[in-house]
Simulated assay, not measured.
Amino acid sequence: MLFFRSPFRRTRRRATQRLINSSRNPISAAVGNELEQLLPTVSSQKTLSALQGELQSFLSMFNRYLEQPTLIDWDNVKPPSTGRIVSYDKLPRDGTSNSDLQRLAVLKLNGGLGSSMAMKGAKSALEVKDNLTFLDLAVEQIAFLNTTHHVDVPLLLMTSFSTQEDTLRVVQKHSGEPVRIMTFNQSRFPRIMKDSLSLYTHVDNIEDRSAWYPPGHGDVYHSLAQSGLLDSLLSEGKEFLFISNSDNLGSS
């Protein structure tokens, strides 16, 4: 009886109401009503807060799609003009000061699977040189930077529910490296049927991976803010965030 009177229970009820209110379109409202049924099944306050934010974000994007399915006019998408491209040879050679590096953090987009390489796990866990994975090499690069310049550039990894386990397995090997490694999960969005625009029939459990998908690189800003790491970095004086794919070793 105390459970039903607890603040957590009231929080779940308010979260459910906000989720329904966010759906302006009847189709989106129907999807929202179905997703609402998931919230009472969540037993963790932390998981509920994260799921609520993710579903709100999903419904907002879903509403935008329903109102204007074609959001990009591809006829207007063109390469930048020659005058806007700066040649590498013309970049300044003054170097980067330690004070600049102290304000830097590096983020690797690490939510992708290596399915195109016939892998079942995280693409960053693929061994590419001397038994080292993409992720191993990224850590070594940041560790070298920190050691050489006597700075503290942290390495952030945005994982997904598909790559989290593989990522943590690789990261554990680098506990003694001079680099702080922080991970956070990108959102999980429910799958939608293309023809009916209804929920995939198995979206009744947040643990059923077949019914959910990570929304991709564009989710980095929302997920970083939701994770609390953005506030933490700002409190440390970090001002610059370098973002690249986890398998892009030439960009670190």
Score class of each variant (00 low, 15 high):
Asn25Glu: 14
Leu249Ser: 03
Leu234Val: 13
Asp195Ala: 09
Arg64Lys: 12
Leu38Gln: 06
Lys238Arg: 04
Asp75Gln: 05
Met1His: 05
Ser232Leu: 13
Phe4Leu: 15
Ala122Pro: 03
Phe62Gln: 11
Leu71His: 01
Asp219His: 03
Glu67Leu: 07
Gln172Tyr: 07
Gly53Phe: 00
Gly95Met: 08
Arg93Val: 08
Ile206Tyr: 03
Val139Leu: 14
Leu35Ser: 12
Ile181Tyr: 00
Val139Arg: 10
Arg103His: 07
Gly53Cys: 01
Pro92Thr: 03
Lys90Pro: 05
Thr96Phe: 15
Gly250Leu: 02
Leu199Asp: 01
Ile27Lys: 01
Ser43Met: 12
Leu101Asp: 01
Ser49Phe: 09
Arg12Val: 13
Lys129Leu: 14
Ser251Pro: 10
Val151Tyr: 01
Leu197Lys: 06
Thr82Ala: 14
Asn185Pro: 09
Leu230Tyr: 09
Ser232His: 10
Asn21Arg: 01
Ser44Asp: 14
Asp73Cys: 01
Ile85Lys: 06
Ala138Pro: 00
Thr70Cys: 07
Leu168Ala: 02
Glu177His: 11
Met158Cys: 10
Asn185Phe: 02
Ala105Tyr: 09
Thr201Ser: 14
Gln172Asn: 08
Ser252Val: 07
Glu54Asp: 03
Ser223Pro: 11
Arg188Val: 02
Ser210Ala: 11
Thr82Pro: 05
Phe3His: 12
Asp231Phe: 13
Asp231Asn: 11
Asn185Trp: 05
Ser251Lys: 09
Gly121Ala: 12
Ala211Gly: 12
Ser196Thr: 11
Ala225Lys: 10
Gln141Leu: 00
Ser115Trp: 13
Ile20Gly: 01
Gln102Thr: 07
Ser223Leu: 08
Gly250Ile: 03
Asp89Thr: 13
Asn185Ala: 11
Arg188Pro: 02
Thr16Trp: 15
Arg169Pro: 00
Ser60Ala: 10
Gly216Leu: 04
Ser124Gly: 11
Arg24Lys: 12
Glu207Phe: 04
Leu230Trp: 10
Met182Glu: 06
Lys78Gly: 04
Leu39Met: 10
Gln141Glu: 04
Gly121His: 10
Lys78Phe: 06
Ala105Gly: 10
Ser246Ile: 14
Ser232Met: 14
Arg24Trp: 04
Ser116Cys: 15
Gly250Val: 04
His202Ser: 15
Gln141Pro: 01
Ala143Val: 06
Ser223Glu: 08
Leu59Glu: 03
Thr41Val: 13
Leu38Lys: 07
Ala143Trp: 02
Tyr221Gly: 12
Asn146Gln: 01
Arg10Tyr: 11
Ala118Gln: 12
Leu51Phe: 00
Ala125Met: 08
Arg191His: 04
Leu104Asp: 07
Gly114Arg: 05
Thr163Ala: 05
Asp152Glu: 13
Ser28Pro: 09
Arg93Tyr: 05
His150Gly: 02
Lys238Trp: 06
Lys123Pro: 06
Pro69Thr: 00
Ala211Asp: 07
Asn110Ile: 05
Val139Ala: 14
Lys123Asp: 14
Met1Asp: 05
Val179Gln: 02
Leu66Ser: 05
Gly250Asn: 01
Val220Thr: 14
Leu197Gly: 06
Ser43Lys: 14
Leu91Cys: 03
Glu140His: 13
Phe161Leu: 03
Lys238Asn: 04
Ser60Cys: 09
Gln37Val: 15
Leu104Met: 08
Ala225His: 07
Leu157Pro: 01
His217Ile: 10
Leu199Glu: 00
Ser187Asp: 03
Leu48Lys: 00
